[in-house]
Design a protein around this nucleic acid. Structure first.
Length: 151
DNA sequence: GCCAACGTTGGC
DNA sequence: GCCAACGTTGGC
């Protein structure tokens, strides 16, 4: 079982949007970064847990927990010319981009702001707080997960 | 809106 | 295969 953190801009897709989806589940489309894709494709397993993180907003923060509920499969948006995620160089025989489905597990009543993550020395080596870390999907160690969830 | 840090692109 | 130019991310 692995732990992750996935970023989303709440203006584009927030945890409340996820909460309103059928089955509170969403196909995590639009990831167009090879490192992030590789983690979904090669390492994510059904049952993995992930923090849902709001980025590029007033209070960047971990706002809840989601769970991986599918294996990786081809991101349909790469084949859709009307999608902003369309990739003309990707073919159905050899799709370039993959995704997984995430299901809402819990929306925090108390969010964990980036500022308090940064203020905790035990969390200093989290990828999230490393300088220049822009990955939209990153791994979280079990230890960090426990600290952040208070378990 | 600024800007640092990255990733990608494309000419050579 | 190098690397400058460009685009994007995302905190502040």
């Amino acid at each position: 079982m692995n732990y992750w953190l996935i970023k989303s801009e709440p203006d584009a897709f927030s945890i409340d949007d996820l909460s309103n989806r059928p089955n509170q589940t969403e196909a995590w489309d639009g990831v167009r970064n090879y490192q992030a894709r590789n983690m979904m494709r090669d390492q994510m397993q059904i049952g993995d847990q992930a923090f849902f993180y709001h980025s590029s907003c007033k209070v960047p923060a971990i706002v809840g927990i989601v769970e991986v509920v599918s294996q990786a499969y081809a991101d349909p948006s790469q084949f859709d010319p009307n999608s902003k995620y369309y990739d003309a160089k990707s073919t159905k025989d050899n799709p370039r981009w993959q995704l997984v489905d995430f299901k809402l597990v819990k929306k925090f009543t108390q969010i964990i702001p980036l500022s308090s993550i940064k203020a905790d020395p035990r969390l200093n080596d989290m990828p999230l707080v490393k300088k220049g870390s822009r990955l939209s999907i990153m791994p979280i160690s079990a230890q960090h997960w426990q600290i952040l969830t208070g378990n």
